[in-house]
Write a protein that binds this DNA or RNA. Structure first.
Lengths: 356, 356
DNA sequence: TTGTAAGCGTTATCAG
DNA sequence: CTGATAACGCTTACAA
């Protein structure tokens, strides 16, 4: 917490030569005084909330310009009981998936006249805590929550119901009664399962994300059911190195008999690709690889990655738009779920298995 | 501008069954009353700004817990004259370069106890305007400005000097007296020039960004001087399609005699790569390609792109840290420049020219 | 050790 | 058409 940065008007009656100090800005009183009217009138000239004599209004406006007066939004918000700003809490803005989601959220917020505070947690609980404090202290009117760090459930649960919060992308286990917008993870898994099965694969390796994420479970579930074959599972953390390490370890062990790899996200698929390349295996000839998310790099890698396109932008946009619908009325959103469609992008990293 | 979202306390004296409405939160007065002390004492118990009898303090704390009281940061900020929140204005958060920059900015802000508002402009002047309004209305204590949309100069110039603003990544033409953190664009251009020259190239095509960006000019300048050979220039807009179109047009024309392409950023380089592939030319055998930025996808494309690594994270972090140093003292930052080193990443897209 | 009162900059209410 | 006053929720002299 930062304490009062400048000591409350020390430069007050001292115009002139202190070049770097921020001068106290003109207030509505200053304008009123200079225009010879009451603050009330100034307020109304600016807001148009009630008619003002055109002469008076003109005079006020001219003073406003001369003094460069801009209403203090803090005071306005204090009086209004709302700030017109919401937060977006995500684990990692440099992950393009979240960047896209953020863009959707920002667009939706902007459309409704709201500002958006970026709360980047780096999966750090302290950081998440601090950001959640913003909603408790009512500095923001609501929060779009798109992180999945498990330790946060308790706190989140306590907040939800009291404050307007929407879940984006990731359900939080055991949290009911929430407004949530998410991609159809199960369908995504199913599409991949069907695709690999149709190609003729029967033995697959599934690289999952952390166990406690519902989205991951849904993907896995959809995949296993649709694939129907033999599935080996390894747990990773959604980051590239974990995809690499998991697969490299399996390859080292020897006796690797899988013909396809389904990674929980594109990043892990990239890691898998690297491990395969290093082991001298060719994709998709020796082994097929599928990702999830369809981040930009997916179509750029070589071979281009077959993956499931997640509508990250829409998830962010939908969650935010829904949330604001309630926030703008001063209500806590009811439980509701918006499942957005996904799409399988078949590219060059999958092919029928070759007999070995 | 959003008008007062909810009509100022209609649910005030109506406790009870309106399930979805947000209940008025406990205020310092409520706590004081319930604990049988004055608001002043509550304030001091919480802030530690002056000693309080341990008995009293304990009683207050217990009431605070029971009521779930959290101080309203708006009121606090109004009183303090600062919000401990700054803005970060960028054109496109889904561009990984800016995402990295944002991450650096967010880290620096977080370290000093500041929040960061993401202002994503999509190169839209209206949007930029609205966000700049946040600083004029003192909702934020400062702004890290990392956009380059030319029409904004005037406004920016008017703001700078009055409000704490730092320029990140991109100088704004004709704006002096600013605090600025930027990568060493000129050195970047030079490194590319030297690299291509050493490989034996003598005829290059340079795909630039918009003309009025200083960074682009610096890159071009450094490149042309170091390369020394024959350089043809085409102006693009930093987006992938423009790289594609520019090169495709040249190829179509016939008589294309360049042996190397230097694109203003990686995205345009990707476009160029696509055009080349389509024309049946092989990189780097027939032609070498170099980018700028070193976004994640650069090492993933095939062939992996030789490019100049920009320290996006550090640019964001440095600009923000510098800005906050002044903001926290209530000062407008003086002119100063921080030039961060770049690095040439030689990968697979460059090679000596083959005689044709 | 504690409390009273003023003030931060607005806007809504009520009165003229 | 306009103005005085209270209120939003907090902090901080100043006083006791």
């Amino acid at each position: 917490m930062t304490r009062d940065p400048y000591g409350g008007g020390a430069t007050h009656g001292r115009p002139g030569h202190d070049r770097s100090a921020v001068r106290r800005a003109a207030s509505i009183k200053d304008v009123a005084a200079a225009a010879g009217v009451s603050p009330t009138t100034v307020s109304h000239v600016l807001s148009g909330n009630r008619p003002v004599n055109e002469q008076t209004a003109a005079r006020v406006r001219s003073v406003v310009n001369r003094l460069g007066y801009v209403p203090a939004s803090l005071a306005r918000s204090l009086q209004a009981g709302a700030t017109s700003v919401i937060g977006l809490l995500i684990p990692d803005i440099s992950n393009t998936f979240f960047a896209e989601l953020a863009k959707g959220a920002e667009d939706a917020a902007h459309d409704l006249g709201y500002g958006l505070i970026l709360c980047n947690t780096e999966f750090d609980a302290d950081r998440e805590d601090r950001y959640l404090g913003m909603i408790r202290s009512r500095f923001i009117d609501g929060m779009v929550y798109a992180s999945g760090s498990p330790p946060s459930r308790r706190r989140l649960e306590a907040l939800m119901g009291k404050f307007p919060i929407a879940l984006a992308d990731e359900e939080v286990e055991g949290l009911t009664g929430a407004l949530i917008a998410t991609a159809d993870h199960e369908a995504g898994g199913r599409l991949v399962g069907e695709h690999l099965r149709e190609l003729g694969h029967r033995r697959a390796l599934m690289l999952t994300g952390p166990r406690d994420l519902k989205s991951g479970a849904a993907r896995a579930h959809g995949f296993v059911r649709a694939f129907g074959g033999d599935v080996v599972e390894r747990v990773g953390d959604f980051k590239e190195p974990s995809g690499y390490r998991l697969l490299a370890a399996l390859l080292d062990e020897g006796g690797f008999d899988r013909t396809a790899v389904f990674a929980a996200n594109d990043l892990m698929a990239f890691g898998a690709l690297a491990a395969l390349r290093e082991a001298g295996l060719s994709v998709p000839r020796d082994i097929s690889v599928v990702g999830f998310d369809d981040i930009r790099a997916a179509s750029l890698v070589s071979p281009a990655l077959t993956t499931v396109h997640q509508p990250a932008y829409d998830v962010g946009r939908t969650a935010t738009a829904q949330l604001l619908q309630y926030v703008s009325r001063g209500e806590v959103p009811p439980a509701s779920r918006h499942t957005l469609p996904v799409e399988l992008k078949v590219r060059a990293s999958t092919a029928p298995p070759t007999a070995r």
